[in-house]
Each structure stands twice: as structure tokens, then as C-alpha cells.
């Protein structure tokens, strides 16, 4: 769903900024990391347009990562704001030594970990969400051959399967899926070695594949 973000009220006569839906085209990712860095530097110099472009490029991926990680929209919204707030506050200190995406998702990962600590959550046991797990086991008897409905069902099963993953595995998997970063970069963000990150990803993918195929068999 495309939506237009009108800047009225924020500026006097700013034009409407449209954020096209970030379709899943990461394998043909045309966003240049160098361009991201230049946009960030331009924003640090006071160019608001640069920030709008940067934001439009990364808002979807970051949002999905946080929603899938926290599995709570309100928490995800808070974390989303916090991450961008840190980007804004640290704009003057930003140096394009690493990809902007690495910088952004490192902030996101750290914000989520901070959140877990704040609420005294047990990250390792956060993998099972009762509602999502129940969704996973439930099958729709009245499954109509409607494409939209099938897609919704598939999406629901996918979310439920994702919810069953241990937090560390889900973290690595979501970073791989949403941030489009390499395993080495994901390892750096999560503070583990590349082999550990790869192992977590392998387990996560294996479990997801098994869960989704089981649902398909049931259907």
C-alpha cells in the first residue's frame, strides 16, 4: 500500500514526499551504499532532502526487522523512532567508514537488545509467541481458492514460523533478509564470529523451511 506523507504542518510549502513501497527487490538492489553515505553526509550539512531520500530507502526494511524482532507493533514503533533518533543525533559524527545500512542495523540491533534488557526479557526464550504458534498449528478449513486469502495465509504461517525461532537465530535471519548485509557484517552487528552467525542462519532457515512445509502438508 503506497501512502503519501504530506509535509504540510511541518514546513510551510514543502511538497509532498511519497514513499514508494519498498518492494522486495533486494537481490537487484540498486541503492548504492556510497550514495547512502553521501546522503547522510549531506544531511549532516543540513540538507533535509537528503534525509528524506535516505529515510525512504531504509524505512521499510528497518520497520520489518523491528516488527518481526519485537513481534509487537507498539514496541516496534518506539524502537523505530529511537533508531532514527539516534541516526539524527549522531549525524555530525557519522563517518562513511562502513555502509550506512550496517550503521543503521547496528543501531537497530542495539536498540532492540537495550529494550530486552529494560523489560527484563529473556531473549533466548522469546522465540515462541503463543498467538503466532497457535496460528502455525491452525489450518483454515474453509480455505477458499482466493489468491489474496492464500497470500494472507502464507504470510500468517510465515510469521508464526518466525516466531518459533530462538531470538538469536531470528535476529541473524532477519538481518540477512531485511538488511541485505553480508554474513560478516551481520556477525559484527550481533557481536559473534562469522561461523556462529552462519550456523545460526542455517538453523533458522532449516526450521523455517520445515515449519512451512509442515503447514503445506497439513493443508
Amino acid at each position: 500500500m503506497n501512502h503519501a506523507l504530506t509535509m504540510d504542518g511541518l514546513t510551510t510549502s514543502e511538497s509532498t514526499v511519497r514513499f514508494a513501497r519498498t518492494t522486495r527487490t533486494r537481490r537487484v538492489d540498486v541503492v548504492s551504499d556510497d550514495e547512502d553515505a553521501q546522503l547522510m553526509l549531506a544531511y549532516a550539512r543540513g540538507d533535509m532532502r537528503a534525509f528524506e531520500q535516505l529515510y525512504a530507502r531504509h524505512r521499510g526494511a528497518l520497520y520489518r526487522y523491528l516488527v518481526r524482532q519485537s513481534r509487537d507493533n507498539e514496541i516496534a514503533h518506539d524502537l523505530f523512532q529511537e533508531v532514527w533518533s539516534r541516526v539524527i543525533v549522531n549525524r555530525a559524527r557519522y563517518e562513511p567508514r562502513a555502509k550506512f545500512r550496517t550503521f543503521l542495523f547496528t543501531l537497530a540491533h542495539n536498540c532492540f537488545i537495550d529494550h530486552c534488557r529494560r523489560v527484563k526479557a529473556r531473549p533466548s526464550s522469546m522465540g515462541v509467541d503463543d498467538a503466532d504458534a497457535a496460528d502455525l498449528l491452525r489450518t483454515d478449513d474453509s480455505a477458499a481458492p482466493d489468491t489474496a486469502m492464500e497470500r494472507d495465509e502464507a504470510s500468517r504461517h510465515y510469521r508464526a514460523a518466525l516466531a518459533t525461532l530462538p531470538q538469536e537465530q531470528r535476529d541473524v535471519y532477519l538481518l540477512h533478509e531485511e538488511s541485505d548485509l553480508s554474513l560478516e557484517e551481520i556477525a559484527r552487528i550481533t557481536g559473534v564470529g562469522p561461523e556462529t552467525a552462519k550456523s545460526r542462519l542455517r538453523y533458522a532457515v532449516g526450521k523455517l523451511k520445515a515449519a512451512l512445509s509442515a503447514v503445506k502438508d497439513l493443508a
Binding site: 520497520y63 520489518r64 514503533h77 504470510s155
Partner: peptide
């Protein structure tokens, strides 16, 4: 891992940040 081939079809979830959230972030940046 090399993003050459998906292991399973990932359904589109259509998750996007709501307009209010966009507005808040952009206001803060401005």
C-alpha cells in the same frame, strides 16, 4: 547465503511504517 536462490518462498507481508511514524521521524530530523 549468497542470495542467489531462496530456500523457501517468502510471502510478501506488506509491512510498512504507518504515516504517523514517518511524520514523526521526519519532523524530528527537520
Amino acid at each position: 547465503v549468497a542470495r542467489r536462490k531462496p530456500l523457501f518462498p517468502r510471502p510478501p507481508d506488506g509491512l510498512e511504517p504507518p504515516a504517523d511514524l514517518d511524520r514523526m521521524v521526519l519532523r524530528q530530523a527537520r
